[in-house]
Write a protein that binds this DNA or RNA. Sequence first.
DNA 1: CCAAAGGTTTAGGTAAGTCTAACCTAGAGG
DNA 2: CCTCTAGGTTAGACTTACCTAAACCTTTGG
Lengths: 224, 224
Amino acid sequence: MISQAMEDYLKAIYKLQQTIKPVPTSALAEHMGFSPASVTNMCKKLAELNLLHYEPYQGVVFTEAGLQVALEIIRHHRLIELYLSKALNVPWDQVHAEAEKLEHVISEDLEDRMAEMLGDPQFDPHGAPIPSRNGTIFRPESESLIDMKAGNRFVVVEVNDDDSELLRYLGTIGLYPGTELLLVERAPFDGPLTLKVAGKQHNLGYQAAKSVRVAPVETSQEPS
Amino acid sequence: MISQAMEDYLKAIYKLQQTIKPVPTSALAEHMGFSPASVTNMCKKLAELNLLHYEPYQGVVFTEAGLQVALEIIRHHRLIELYLSKALNVPWDQVHAEAEKLEHVISEDLEDRMAEMLGDPQFDPHGAPIPSRNGTIFRPESESLIDMKAGNRFVVVEVNDDDSELLRYLGTIGLYPGTELLLVERAPFDGPLTLKVAGKQHNLGYQAAKSVRVAPVETSQEPS
DNA sequence: CCAAAGGTTTAGGTAAGTCTAACCTAGAGG
DNA sequence: CCTCTAGGTTAGACTTACCTAAACCTTTGG
Ligand SMILES: [Mn+2]
Ligand SMILES: [Mn+2]
Ligand SMILES: [Mn+2]
Ligand SMILES: [Mn+2]
């Protein structure tokens, strides 16, 4: 009933509706790399299945059922990423591509077994929250590094998981979720940011910094 | 280039050509549950890709390239079965269904990681040989239990992996690959077989016994 | 309140993979 | 050695999922 293509649409809609609601079909089209005509078409089908509310010219919004399906697939994706990373040592820049294919194909039983093996984990290797079995999700507060003020300390909360090259680069610097950093300086005009991570200084390009989301570090006492 | 459907055809052809060569398109059709017309159609496509030799009305035979593709998928299938069974404790009657979907979707990298984690295993949970990375396979001699003479001892070599219910039943008896058994008696006219497994006696239906392949136990000294 | 931007519809197309129904062929048995 | 039928093939059509181009409609902001 719900095809793989539909699942991918729902995932994309989930991502976009975190920013815009309702989601314009044109935004969806651009995000997915399909023509607007194709997207309108598919949205009508998904509305037919009661997964979306679709109002012509107004974009789409999830129905409760649609949201649950989306979260279900996202749970698969993120659990698989974490599982591959932990159980098979797949590098964090490769797990996303692998999960994109596996997420559509694993059984609920396998999902449960992976979750159990991992101790019902809350976050994937890129810091994204894993929806719970019953479809709830909590995303911790975070903001992009590029919007932060220089001179402050932050923890990496989440990084973009769909750019393999970028992830490999962030890995060499050590910018994993949980890592602390000091934002030393921000060059103006969307220039690079200077960071201190684990005692070492780095220049991070603007585009790279954009996909690193952080939270302020609680003003803790420096361990003497 | 090679679609999932094509992979399934090649797998089916591999199975059938162990018995009949060349493989009649009708046998393929019956095995796969498709119409003969669909199968002829696909065989022509596979021949076009140089994966099969196809002679109208004469059935199909693998080319070397086709055989390698088939073995590649079978390696995926069996590695996945063993991995799920060992790493995630998936029961042996469920691994087949799961592997049917996953086999088409895992990367070569994941295949290698699973193989490594398992120590380059030779057999899947049902006793079927796992093709090596470079496409060689060795299937140990074995014969169906129904062709064996009563009064002799055997080891289970391999069981049919595509009937979940049967596997669950064999599991309750303890008939796993490697298990020793004594064939006590064979009822005539395709009747049930009486076995002794681990000291307990069982009556195994003819159909069930058919899918259990065994080898004679070397006449070893009974441990006193 | 009207024009441009955004979105939809229509029409027509491709590519898999499947089907049914009509047809053909090989080869066994009369 | 000829015929009949089981086994195979061909033809034509359908479905799903995507595409484009071009005409058209709606919303909204200036
Ligand atoms: Mn699930
Ligand atoms: Mn991720
Ligand atoms: Mn492989
Ligand atoms: Mn198996």
